[in-house]
């Protein structure tokens, strides 16, 4: 079972790594032609056609090339501060707002699920920092970590449940179709994944593991096992679908899950 200081440190390191990877990728993608290439702000600003003229002008100003790059440099500094000094209201708040700034530039989301989970974690940390103004830090941290944990459990459970209700997943066709369409696809003609038995077994393994993720609430030991499987799961998602950000974004949440599961164990045993 993790103690609160251990959880905080693990979260600090993993979130720092995740945000560092994301920020360096954004830097690399901010080539000189970013403003005039596919993702031209001159075109994208019309997404704000419903907004007032001053708001559109404001967004055009803040998404200028220089300010964009300056933000990325500042973001790197904030990430390093979090890695070396831990979280505080300033670095967490600015990272949260900076993430929103980045996502709006990419029309709401750049990488989908990893963006969602990053926002969840940062929101949880904002909750922690703000709550500490009124309550004991340990209570504030517990609230923030439970926020992250509930979203993490929900993400797996809902993802598994919708697969359970779809016959394409139950009979193995969906997993082959997705692997064929993945960025590292298609599957080789003689791939073992094309065997119906293997496809069905893999499908049901994912479905059952995702649907059973709430079992982490049974205790820290269960949480460690399910999170270890999750690390493997997300590595496979990266291996086949190229979703590296998903791997790190979800790994960030596992210390929170294990800590909260441990806290529940204490409740079950009557220790609290």
């Amino acid at each position: 079972m993790l103690t609160l200081p251990q959880t905080q440190y693990a979260l600090q390191i993993l979130l720092g790594i995740s945000l560092l990877i994301q920020t360096l990728e954004f830097w690399r993608l901010s080539e000189p032609r970013f403003a005039t290439g596919v993702w031209s702000w001159q075109i994208q600003k019309d997404d704000l056609g419903h907004a007032s003229p001053w708001l559109r002008h404001y967004f055009t100003m803040i998404y200028g090339d220089r300010l964009w790059r300056l933000h990325l440099v500042l973001r790197l500094g904030l990430i390093l501060s979090a890695l070396l000094l831990g979280f505080n209201l300033l670095n967490v708040g600015l990272l949260f707002m900076g993430t929103l700034y980045l996502l709006i530039r990419w029309r709401g989301a750049f990488n989908g699920g990893s963006d969602f989970m990053t926002i969840v974690v940062l929101t949880g940390l904002v909750v922690v920092q703000l709550a500490q103004i009124w309550v004991d830090p340990a209570v504030a941290w517990t609230a923030g970590l439970w926020y992250i944990t509930i979203h993490t459990i929900s993400s797996y459970f809902l993802s598994g449940a919708v697969k359970l209700f779809y016959d394409g997943w139950r009979d193995g066709r969906a997993i082959i179709a997705f692997l064929d369409g993945a960025i590292y696809g298609p599957l080789a003609a003689d791939s073992v994944m094309r065997k119906p038995v293997v496809a069905v077994m893999c499908s049901w393994a994912f479905i059952l593991w995702e649907c059973s993720f709430p079992m982490v609430l049974l205790g820290a030991d269960w949480a460690v096992v399910w999170c270890a499987i999750a690390v493997l799961f997300h590595f496979l998602v990266f291996w086949f679908f190229g979703l590296n950000r998903f791997f790190w974004a979800w790994c960030v949440t596992f210390p929170a899950v294990i800590y909260c599961a441990g806290q529940l164990s204490l409740v079950y045993s009557g220790a609290t």
Binding site: H50, G113, M117, Y156, L158, R173
Partner: peptide, 20 residues
């Protein structure tokens, strides 16, 4: 809505690869 679209990261949809 247009603002909801831009802020949809606050409304996570955990349905990944759920249907072909």
């Amino acid at each position: 809505g247009p603002w909801l679209f831009l802020f949809r990261s606050f409304l996570p949809n955990w349905r990944f690869y759920h249907r072909v």
